[in-house]
Design a protein around this nucleic acid. Sequence first.
DNA 1: TTGTACGCGTTATCAT
DNA 2: ATGATAACGCGTACAA
Lengths: 338, 338
Amino acid sequence: MSEITIKDIAKHAGVSVATVSRVVNGFMGVSPATMDKVNKAIADLNYVPNATARSLKIDRTNLLAMLVSNISNSHFTSMAKTIESCCRQEHFNILLCNTEDDPDIELEYLKRLTELRVDGIILNTTGLNDAYICSLSHTIPMVLVDRSIDDPDFAGDFVGSNGFDGMKLLTSHLIERGHRRIGIISSNQHVSTGRERYAGFVDTMKLAGISIDDQYPYKYAGKLFNEEDGISGARYLMNLEVPPTAIIAANNNMAIGVYKYLGSQNISVPDTVSVVSYGNISNSDLFPVVPTFTTLNPTFIGEKTATLLLSRIQDNTRSKREVIFQPLLLVNESTKSI
Amino acid sequence: MSEITIKDIAKHAGVSVATVSRVVNGFMGVSPATMDKVNKAIADLNYVPNATARSLKIDRTNLLAMLVSNISNSHFTSMAKTIESCCRQEHFNILLCNTEDDPDIELEYLKRLTELRVDGIILNTTGLNDAYICSLSHTIPMVLVDRSIDDPDFAGDFVGSNGFDGMKLLTSHLIERGHRRIGIISSNQHVSTGRERYAGFVDTMKLAGISIDDQYPYKYAGKLFNEEDGISGARYLMNLEVPPTAIIAANNNMAIGVYKYLGSQNISVPDTVSVVSYGNISNSDLFPVVPTFTTLNPTFIGEKTATLLLSRIQDNTRSKREVIFQPLLLVNESTKSI
DNA sequence: TTGTACGCGTTATCAT
DNA sequence: ATGATAACGCGTACAA
C-alpha cells in the first residue's frame, strides 16, 4: 500500500500534476471547474501532500528548533509555550531539544539540525561550543536566549536579561538592610549569565566596601544550576563557623535547593537567614514565606525571541540585534533588616 | 551559494556518488583508501548530508511528535524530558505541539504532522477528534498518554493511570476521616480522565451511602483543567450556605487554584477545610501545609510511552497495548479527621 | 488556462 | 570494490 501522490490525483481528476500542484498551493490561474475536479479527487483519494518532497524542492522545511538546558525548568516551559504559539501561527513547527547543559549533546543536536535543514534555531547555549555556533550562525538563522556569546563572528540575535543589574538589585537590597556576610551560590562561569551575575555581585559588594577575593568565605560555586547545587551550597554556607546572614541564589533551581535545605534543617527564613534569588520559583506565592527575587518574564522573552527569529529567517544577513530586559526586584517576605 | 551535495563530494574525491553514499552511511564494501579520500573531501568541503532528500528516498523522517494539552504543566514537562531523552538515544527528534486543549489546534496539528510524515505520535488528546485519530492510528504509529480513546478502531497503544482507583483512594481517605460533605472540582467530561475520575468519586461516595445526583450541592464542573477552574470551584464551594469540610481537585492545576483561593481568603487548610488532589503540584514540599495527593509519576509514564512508540514504529500492525499505572496515595498534611 | 519535462539530493539496483 | 542510473514526490520554467 504505497503513498497517494500528486500523480494519482492528476490521473483521477484527468488533469496534469502541475494543475494539482497549483490547486494544492492555492495559486491563481485555475478555472473553478478544474479546481472542483481536483479537490474532489483529493477528497476521494484522501491525498495528503508530502512535506518532505516539498521541502527538498523549495529548500525550506518550516521546521525550527529550540535547544534549552532543562525543559523541566518552569522558566523554559513558559518560554516554550509562548514560542510555540507564535511560531504555530506562522506555520512553523518546533523541535524540542533538551541539552541538560551537556556540550556534547548540544553539539550532537546542532549537527543533526543542520542535516534536517531546520529554518531557524533558538539556543540556550551551554557556552562550550562557541566557535561551532558562531560558524553555524552564518548558515542557519539563530537567536540566543538568556545566554549570549560575546564574539563578533556570531551572526544571530540575542534576547536575555541584564544579569549584572539584576544581581546588583539583589545584592543592594541585602546591603541596604544591613547585611554584610552575604553568601553567594553562583553558577557555571562558562555561561554568560553565570559570569554577569557573579560580576554584579562582586561589583556591588565592592561599592559597599567588601572586596570579594579568594579569601571571601561566603561563596559557593555551583556546577549545573540545579537543585542539588542549591542544597550543597546552602549546607556549605550554613555550616561555616560564622554563617552568613543572607544567601543569594544565582538562579531559580538553586533557590529551590536552598529553601529545601533550610527547611529540612528547620533554619528559619528570614529570621536566621535572608534569602533572595535571581528568577522566580513556580508556585512560590504558595510558600509560607514568599521569596524575594528578580523577575525574568519568560513569556515576554519568548515572544521577542520568536519575533526576532522569524524576521531573521526572512533575511539572515541583517545586522545582529540584542534585546536585553531589565530585571525587576520583587520584594516579598524572605528578607529582613539586621 | 548553493548547497554542497553528495555530487560535489564525489567529484572532489574522484569517485561516484554511490561510493560517497556508502561511506556516509557506513556501509561495508568500500576500500580503506577510497574511504579516506571521501572522508577528506567531506571534511574539505564541509559537507552535511541532506536529511530531507534522504527521508524522501527512504520514506522515514526520524521525526516524532508529542501533542500535549499544556506544556506548562509540570506533569507534562517531566514526561517530555524523559521522552526526549529516550528518543534521542534512538536518533529520533521530537516536535513539540501544545494544543491548549483546543480540538481545532489538535486537528490542525495532526494534519500538519501527516504532511510531515512523522514516524510516530504521542498524543494527550482533547477527546474531541476521536474518529479522525482512530483513522490516523492505522497510518501513523501512535501512543495515547493519560487520556484514552475507547474505540475498537483505535490501533495504537495507551499509557496512563487508573483514574477510577486513584479517585477512590482520595475519596476513601476523606470518608475514613469522617468527611461527608465532600466538594468535588471535576474536569472536562469529554476526556477519559475526567470521566473516570468523576466515576471513581461517585462510586466511592455511593458505597459510603451518599448518592451523587443532580441535587448534590458540592460539585463544581471545571472546563479546562486549569488554575482558574480551581479558583472558581473553591470560591463556589466555600460560599455555599453549608460549605464542604473537604475538597477534591481532579488534577494538579486545579489544585493550585484551590490553594490560591483558600490562601487569599485566609481559609485554613486543613482546619477549616481538607484538600486533596489527583496528581502532585511542583514544589509542593515547600508549602506551609504539604498537600495530600495521588502520585502520577510522569517520568515512568514518559519512559513507557517512548518504549511503546519506538517498538510500534517497528511494526504498526501489532495488537494494541495498554499500560495503566496504579496511583499511590501520599498522605501529607492537608487533611484532618473530623 | 493547462500540460510537459526537468531537477531538488539522496538511496538502491544492477551492472562491471 | 566501484559506477551509472533510475526512482522518491514535488514545484516550476517553458511551451502550448
